[in-house]
Design a binder for these strands. Structure first.
Lengths: 117, 117
DNA sequence: CGGTATCCTGTGCGATACTG
DNA sequence: CAGTATCGCACAGGATACCG
């Protein structure tokens, strides 16, 4: 039996708190699909994320060791992001949830509408 | 290849937007571990969630059809929550992420510390 | 190209009080 | 017991401008 009540020591909460924002999981999915990507590729792929939030998301993922960030000292600058081994390990789990979402969205939307009248 | 760029039509975003708040996934996990639970049981199990946010989270999960809410017309009131079939189907996926979190938290915390100096 | 720096706003969330 | 109602605020996140 788990104990979720202490936010700082509970692993699940420690990790989920980090994944539970508007963009992080999406960034992992995109990087997982395409492999190595540059900043603006990710940006285009997600579409409505602001540059600021993409930067913030990437930096947090880098800090946690889920993605790597390689800077090529050329002009114009070239920066490549990719999943690390740790990130690769997380990817299939997120992918599974993504598939579940695809399978059940219609049902969930119907439920939601009915509930809200 | 997925297209994540339209928030309203993309299944992944539709579903993830709903799961990506501070408490929802935790509520699913707790209900998954213990089965049928009353309001205050969930509240105690999570500890630092406010009654307001627990109510909000439960209502959203109910709206999406992931949990059911059964009210017994007795005094004092008795309300039981449990995962629906749809919720049960999502549970193992979240469980897997929870396990991943348990396995890798220490590494992630170390990464984070090193990154932030 | 790949970002910062600033400013600003909506809202997620907590705290507290009250209720059938 | 299982909630609502209300208030207030920190902060996530958007918009815009600027930069090496």
């Amino acid at each position: 039996m788990n104990n979720f009540s202490d936010a700082t020591s509970c692993p699940v909460r420690n990790v989920l708190d980090r994944l539970s924002d508007k963009w992080t999981i999406l960034v992992i999915l995109v990087l997982g699909e395409t492999g190595t990507m540059r900043f603006n590729e990710i940006h285009k792929q997600i579409g409505d994320i602001s540059e600021k939030m993409l930067t913030v998301s990437l930096r947090k993922l880098e800090a946690d060791g889920l993605i790597s960030r390689e800077v090529y000292p050329v002009i114009p600058p070239r920066v490549e992001y990719r999943l690390t081994a740790l990130g690769q390990e997380l990817l299939p789990l997120i992918d599974t949830i993504s598939n579940w979402a695809n399978r059940h969205m219609q049902q969930i939307l119907t439920n939601r509408q009915q509930y809200n009248g």
